[in-house]
């Protein structure tokens, strides 16, 4: 099943919303820079940077799915052995 709207209609409908979200993101990053201290070594900053890269790349998977996986803990299929259950 696809979305009934064509891409032009989606863009017309969502352009201002996307623009607003990018401005919000930019302001958050500005706020981090203006605040005292440095968080560049914080792993969460690395994840944010990787997430921004995903938005600009072309891939077979959806961008939302890739972002979700980026921010997910790793699954190991032998977990039951580790827990002994």
């Amino acid at each position: 099943m696809s979305i009934p709207l064509n891409s032009q209609q989606v863009l017309d409908r969502e352009y201002l919303e996307i623009r607003g979200k990018i401005v919000e993101l930019a302001a958050s990053l500005d706020r981090l820079e203006r605040a005292e201290g440095c968080v560049s070594d914080d792993n969460r900053m690395k994840l944010i940077s990787q997430g921004l890269q995903i938005l600009l790349e072309q891939a077979d998977q959806t961008k939302a799915g890739q972002i979700q996986m980026l921010f997910s803990r790793v699954y190991e299929d032998n977990w039951r052995n580790q827990f002994d259950i």
Partner: peptide, 14 residues
Amino acid sequence: HLADKYQGTRMILD
């Protein structure tokens, strides 16, 4: 929730 969702969902399905 959040970072735990993928791992937890896979464990539940297992």
